[in-house]
């Protein structure tokens, strides 16, 4: 499945590095990445492919939860279909 990873919070050094390292370890392929300041927040949005992921989704979530704490940002992994369903006809 393809998922959208959103990272929202205060900008600091090492956010992309920290997250992409975890993704590489888990064999998750990053398909696209964008970073902006949206509505006063640093926002990074990644489109990733979880097809060849070598851990379960809940394990990936756990790893990202830990990173979330150390980076002080919010990280979310969501199936891309939820955004498509809501915004595309």
């Amino acid at each position: 499945m393809r998922a959208v990873i959103t990272v929202i919070g205060k900008d600091k050094i090492g956010i992309i590095a920290g997250i992409s390292t975890i993704l590489a370890e888990c064999n998750v392929n990053i398909l696209d990445i964008s970073q902006t300041i949206l509505q006063d927040y640093f926002t990074m949005i990644m489109l990733v492919d979880l097809t060849y992921m070598n851990v379960s989704l809940s394990e990936l979530n756990e790893k990202l939860d830990k990173k979330e704490e150390s980076l002080g940002v919010s990280i979310k992994v969501q199936h891309e279909d939820i955004f498509k369903a809501m915004h595309q006809i």
């Binding site: 926002t43 891309e80 939820i82």
Partner: peptide, 12 residues
């Protein structure tokens, strides 16, 4: 890719 604003809207 899906529009960033739409992604943020859903999350909000």
């Amino acid at each position: 890719m899906i529009n960033s604003n739409e992604i943020i809207e859903t999350i909000r």
